[in-house]
């Protein structure tokens, strides 16, 4: 029998997408700290405050995780809300990103205030910056006024409390369930089912620490949240994104002591994970907000543009090389 033709060899199920995947570009800008001394000092103080609070609640958490975590929601919401209102620009009051085109990483990294100025002077960013999904960029006068008055750069206090409340509602409704699911897959106990509420509360704590400031600063911009879902936000001087990453990584690492056979009370679910979340959050904030390291950089997962023709169409290696060479030569 002659060798079968290629059409015979088509796999029974569609195997790979018809064309190779395309690398996207992140569109978010680093979240600036409001340019007032109060904002800067309060952002330091806030990290300390939250860590100290959890520290003093540690024994209550071990004694009765459910009640303790439930009661703590109030304080953490308040603390994070105040932090947002005092230190961060609310969604729409700053240029949070570009809808398309590449962000020049170096200018984004230098100082977020430039972003404000960029918006004021109508630089290349603002030109393409407004999308239908995003609130309009704040008028330049508000920014200018903010930087001179003691009120801070974020607009009037009333103009900050409302978005803070609004983002608090979003934070308490949207992320906890997906985060619970993520925690369950990562190892949160499914049985006994009586522990599920604890996991939900843990997820709510993570949401408050990690996602409330993102809601406050980015709103519900789909392109911003696409970047969040790809872990692609740039690290920022206000410590928001580093806090989020730190909380997630910290919670992940926080699960390690639970498996050890020390038989301590605090090894039970979810004590060490919550402490891991808080510590990771604090470390992330210290590194970016206090030590100002890595600001403007994004997490590099060594994503690369795929070589075209790497999909199923190309039959031999020869043409691939030429294709990738032409790509490089462009």
């Amino acid at each position: 029998m002659s060798s079968p033709s290629i059409t015979h060899l088509l796999p029974p199920t569609p195997v790979q997408p018809a064309a190779s995947a395309r690398l996207l570009t992140p569109t978010t800008q680093p979240i600036p700290l409001l340019p007032s001394h109060l904002a800067k000092r309060y952002s330091y103080f806030h990290t300390l405050l939250v860590v100290i609070y959890y520290y003093f609640r540690a024994s209550a958490l071990v004694a009765d995780p459910y009640t303790a975590m439930f009661l703590d929601l109030g304080f953490v919401s308040l603390a994070q809300g105040v932090f947002c209102a005092v230190c961060l620009p609310s969604a729409g009051s700053w240029v949070s990103g570009t809808a398309g085109g590449k962000i020049n990483e170096s200018t984004g990294a230098v100082a977020p205030l430039k972003t404000f100025k960029g918006a004021k002077t109508g630089g290349n960013l603002s030109g393409s910056g407004s999308s239908s999904l995003r609130k309009k960029i704040a008028p330049p006068s508000a920014v200018k006024g903010g930087s001179t008055k003691g009120e801070g750069a974020g607009g009037s206090w009333k103009g900050r409390v409302t978005p803070a409340l609004f983002s608090l509602i979003l934070t308490l409704t949207l992320p906890p369930l997906p985060l619970t699911l993520i925690a369950l897959v990562l190892g949160a106990p499914l049985y006994p089912t009586s522990l599920l509420p604890c996991t939900l509360l843990l997820a709510t704590h993570v949401a408050l620490l990690g996602f409330l400031p993102i809601f406050y600063t980015h709103g519900v911009s789909s392109s911003a949240w696409r970047d969040v879902a790809a872990a692609w936000l740039p690290f920022d001087e206000s410590g928001v994104w580093a806090g989020t990453v730190g909380a997630l990584v910290g919670g992940w690492i926080g699960a390690v002591p639970m498996a050890l056979d020390w038989d301590r009370e605090w090894q039970k679910w979810p004590c060490t994970v919550l402490w891991g979340v808080v510590l990771g959050w604090a470390v992330g904030r210290l590194v970016t907000n206090v030590a100002r390291l890595g600001i403007g950089r994004r997490i590099n997962l060594s994503e690369k543009e795929e070589e075209p023709g790497a999909g199923t169409e190309v039959l031999a290696a020869g043409p691939v090389k030429t294709l990738s060479e032409t790509k490089k030569s462009k």
């Binding site: 995947a21 395309r22 992140p26 993520i182 897959v185 190892g187 879902a229 692609w232 992940w252 997962l301």
Partner: peptide, 20 residues
């Protein structure tokens, strides 16, 4: 623990590509 985390990373990475 490791596989869960790595699948999350693949999810993040997947978010950085458009499927076509």
């Amino acid at each position: 623990w490791a596989l869960g985390a790595y699948l999350i990373i693949l999810y993040f990475k997947g978010g950085r590509y458009a499927i076509s």
